[in-house]
């Protein structure tokens, strides 16, 4: 457990270093969206091999390549099993409550939009934002926050 969370931290940090190394412009503050969680802790599965969630960078609703790969699998699964889904959008605890509600909604819609481009009908997707109200990891650490910046796809029928 400990080694696993250490590894996850390492992944987050490693990605951060990689991206900042690629950045050509000098940035004093953290660049938006460069701290996406890439581990597997907290992840559940809609079906074998179909992860239920994707993660986001701070204040960002951009889907990473890895997120898109996850959503491709979700789209295949939703189509083949003819289910409807609710996309829950969540934020970490480091923003103001009202802004986070809007941010969660934006994240859930980024996922919903992507699923629609993969042929899922708008009528079988609902979105809901919980802002920072329903964290999955409850300690106040950079790792927990990265796990909470997420959208979760939930079966609704």
């Amino acid at each position: 457990m400990l080694t696993k969370s250490l590894r996850n931290t390492f992944l987050v940090i490693a990605l951060g270093i990689f991206i900042s190394a690629c950045s050509t412009t000098a940035q004093k503050t953290q660049k938006k969206g460069d701290d996406v969680y890439t581990g597997t802790d907290t992840v559940k599965f809609l079906a074998t091999g179909v992860a239920d969630r994707v993660f986001f960078g701070t204040n960002s609703s951009r889907l990473t390549t890895a997120s898109k790969a996850t959503l491709d699998k979700q789209a295949d699964y939703i189509k083949s099993s003819k289910i409807s889904v609710v996309i829950e959008g969540h934020a970490d605890e480091r923003g103001t409550r009202e802004y986070n509600l809007a941010l969660g909604e934006r994240r859930a819609n980024a996922v919903s939009d992507y699923l629609m481009t993969k042929g899922i009908a708008k009528t079988s997707i609902k979105v809901i934002s919980y802002g920072k109200e329903r964290p999955v990891s409850t300690d106040s650490s950079a790792l927990a926050w990265s796990q909470n910046r997420r959208s979760v796809t939930v079966k609704s029928n």
């Binding site: 609703s61 009202e98 509600l101 809007a102 909604e105 934006r106 859930a108 819609n109 980024a110 939009d113 934002s129």
Partner: peptide
């Protein structure tokens, strides 16, 4: 108040 629709508030 705010109203959020399609990712835009």
């Amino acid at each position: 108040m705010s109203f959020a629709k399609d990712g835009n508030s």
